[in-house]
Nucleic acid binder design. Structure first.
Lengths: 168, 168
DNA sequence: ATAAACTTTCAATAAATCCTGAAAGTTTAA
DNA sequence: TTAAACTTTCAGGATTTATTGAAAGTTTAT
């Protein structure tokens, strides 16, 4: 396969994967071109490569920065901002997991805590089933949360080491 | 908190979580009401509880069945179909992971395999960077894929046992 | 202080996704 | 075989989400 075709297909694939996981397709595509770029890129480079507007580019790059997947880089003698992606895929995975934990797991935990303590007739079939499910979910989410914390906080690459054990 | 309020909030929360992970909000809400229902529900029950149309209900229940999260149940003497959700949360997690692996990880693996072998000038900075990233990604996705396979195929609850080790 | 270079915002618009409801299809009972 | 009971489909409409582009905001060099 020729390089330009391969590149286009990677951008496509990465964008599709992102959108399947609830991430803006364009944000994932911007991430893709930064991942494979050997040099920092500026807003115009990204606009051009993806044929998107300045505003859209700005917004999605900012989001990538908020996810800690990209950082700004200043090139001496140039007023423009340039952007660089974290290139270690295990580190990328860790940061995505950390961010999703914070944004999605933690709020759910809070809600479940409350829902466990629903008031009402303790003999009602409905309330029994509800409470049982809330307890199960809270316990599950709590374990996930804790496991994920361990994974993302370990100094050595625990994620890798755990998964490696699974594969032997 | 009162039961009906708690129930409404659970349906809301589950729907939101689903949509953040790329799953149709309504499908997640249907899942929620089945998860907490002590009895099988029919299409009309679901339509009524969520105020959605018959067509929408049918489509989303079918999807839940395709994800192996819900199954049909026949009640003797009744012509209607009733639906029941898998209630073991670890089993629910296993099935979701299995399904996402099949739908999303496997297709990506195929593409990465091809993209690793891009042709062109081996000294080009761009091609070097691209190839390096494809190799990293392919290796990563391969390990994820393998780990996930182990998790979902183990007869005992390996998912639990692995996570449990993390938490000690 | 000024203006050029650059970045950010956001209201209007476009695109993608989801939902409805009626019609077509299927199954069951008699 | 018929018709009632039930399920499925899908074109059109509604809603949600993403994008544009121009104006406002900011920074830097002189």
């Amino acid at each position: 396969m020729e390089f330009n075709e391969a590149k286009a297909q990677f951008i496509q694939t990465w964008g599709k994967l992102g959108s399947e996981w609830g991430i803006n397709r364009t944000m994932a595509q911007v991430h893709a071109i930064l991942l494979i770029s050997p040099t920092p890129l500026c807003t115009e480079d990204i606009m051009e490569q993806l044929s998107i507007s300045r505003g859209n580019t700005n917004m999605n790059v900012r989001d990538l920065i908020n996810w800690s997947l990209v950082h700004k880089e200043l090139i001496p003698g140039d007023r423009k901002e340039y952007f660089v992606a974290e290139k270690d895929i295990w580190e990328v995975a860790r940061r995505i997991i950390a961010e999703r934990k914070k944004r999605e797991l933690e709020p759910v935990t809070k809600v479940l805590q409350q829902l466990k303590n629903v008031e009402g007739d303790k003999d009602s079939k409905e309330i029994k089933e509800f409470t049982s499910m809330m307890n199960q979910l809270d316990s599950f989410v709590g374990k996930m949360d804790k496991s994920v914390s361990v994974l993302i906080n370990e100094k050595e690459n625990k994620l890798f080491s755990i998964l490696f054990k699974l594969m032997k």
